[in-house]
Design a protein around this nucleic acid. Structure first.
Lengths: 250, 250
DNA sequence: GCCGTGCGTGTGGCCGGACCACACAGCGGG
DNA sequence: CCCGCTGTGTGGTCCGGCCACACGCACGGC
């Protein structure tokens, strides 16, 4: 199985993929955990008998997928540390496929509606079946975000940041980590489209006021344990805004 | 904005990220399209005034995301070509986050159920509202896969390959490219778990026969335009198998 | 004319070495 | 005790070299 060159690497599997596989095995086996540090590039290269360049290539993939982050220097913040940010990989991947025109924006919007209606219905359902615990621990932060959104003088960017926090909070309350990550990735991927569309709105203040009212109606439906209403209000809210900002006209 | 070193690169943005941004812009602007070729690494490095290593790092990320594939040599198959494989990036990302124990398998199963019930319900809905066109062009391949699955002597791997093709075909018929990609990514990410679970089943032949019957029932509900039944059968089919293969016991 | 062989060219794959900036720890001097 | 300097280890980037691969083209032989 030796290749003819000087490198003992299997010729069908690229070297950086060997590095990735090794790191995945270490993650699976618990030898690497979120918050823990990878060996230094030079160390890992020596251990695996490959060049540092190949290790770096693998590291780049892991960074893009939101598995690790790297810092130069020494001390506890230095090197490659395992993180838990699947949304980063989702955002990057979806953005690129959007850029290549393979993924239509309309499909992204549609999946967002599906995931978010499901999430809020699920949260509302849990409120209905176990009212006290969920209301206290899960909807308080969402209400706080809505209060922040009522402040005057918010920039469009700031409004959307709070908007994202509100929606992400509700989706997060569904308890499905992957759904939350996909949702975050979707929003991240179309952020520029949303900003462009928002700036083109004829009456941003009027729209913002309507969005705020819709947020409150959604939170109300969730808090009163009405899955059907919650889902319907979310759907109307998302589709309404995207239609107004011309995001569905792909 | 010049850094102190010999490299004129902005110090807050890594060089490979500059390369990625450039390629994303080219994709967005249509200068690069699916099927088209990127400039050679050496050419791109010279154009951007960076080292070939930085270009390679960016290329690795694009490969992992399913945006490009690379081949050595010369001629039409050589170099980095733009492809449309978002599922690849999904699979890789989800696998890694699964490996790090940040993503629970149960969340993956849950999302799969959500996406697949939505997809078959949508296809069934379209059958109901436009029966002739959809039945002929979209369900024929699915029925053909089921016929293949009835052949004797299928290995477990082959059975699951056909199983995946059947499910992917139905999801693909929903018409949402992103949903199909996420679904494919989910399946790819948990493939090893499924294989392990399947090999541990006490009566694979009995299970396989039941799965086949459930496939036919699902296809029947879709073909007769019954969204509610289609979704319910898919749900029961997925949850039943994953429970039996101990995939929900996370 | 056709086929086979060898050479040249361009491609990605990989390596090793060099140097940089950063971040910290440890030590010595005021 | 505080500050400055030095040393060490980290990732970031570049450069140059060589390899295998894949093709195109030219030349020679039949």
């Amino acid at each position: 199985m030796e290749t003819g060159g000087r490198c003992p690497t299997l010729s069908l599997v690229r070297t950086h993929e060997l590095v990735l596989a090794r790191i995945e095995r270490d993650l699976s086996a618990g030898r690497l955990t979120v918050g823990g540090r990878l060996p230094a590039e030079r160390t890992l290269a020596a251990e695996l008998g490959v060049s540092r360049a190949s290790v770096r290539e693998a590291i780049r993939v892991l960074e893009a997928m939101g598995i690790i982050r790297t810092n130069v220097g020494s001390g506890p913040e230095a090197g490659a540390v395992v993180i838990d940010n699947p949304a980063a990989g989702m955002t990057a991947g979806i953005r690129l496929h959007l850029a290549s025109h393979h993924l239509p924006v309309a499909d992204i919007v549609e999946l967002r509606v599906l995931l978010e209606t499901w999430s809020v219905a699920r949260v509302a359902d849990r409120v209905r079946s176990s009212r006290d615990g969920l209301s206290a621990t899960d909807l308080g932060p969402s209400a706080a975000v809505l209060a922040q959104m009522d402040e005057t003088g918010l920039s469009i960017e700031e409004f959307h940041r709070l908007d994202a926090a509100f929606h992400a909070g509700l989706v997060g309350s569904s308890g499905n980590v992957l759904v939350a990550a996909v949702m975050s990735g979707l929003r991240g991927a179309i952020h520029d489209y949303v900003m462009t569309g928002t700036r083109g709105l004829p009456d941003w203040e009027g729209t913002a006021a309507r969005l705020r009212a819709e947020h409150r109606a959604i939170l109300d439906a969730v808090a009163t344990g009405d899955p059907g209403q919650a889902a319907e209000r979310v759907r109307a809210h998302i589709e309404g805004f995207y239609r107004e900002a011309a995001l569905d006209a792909e």
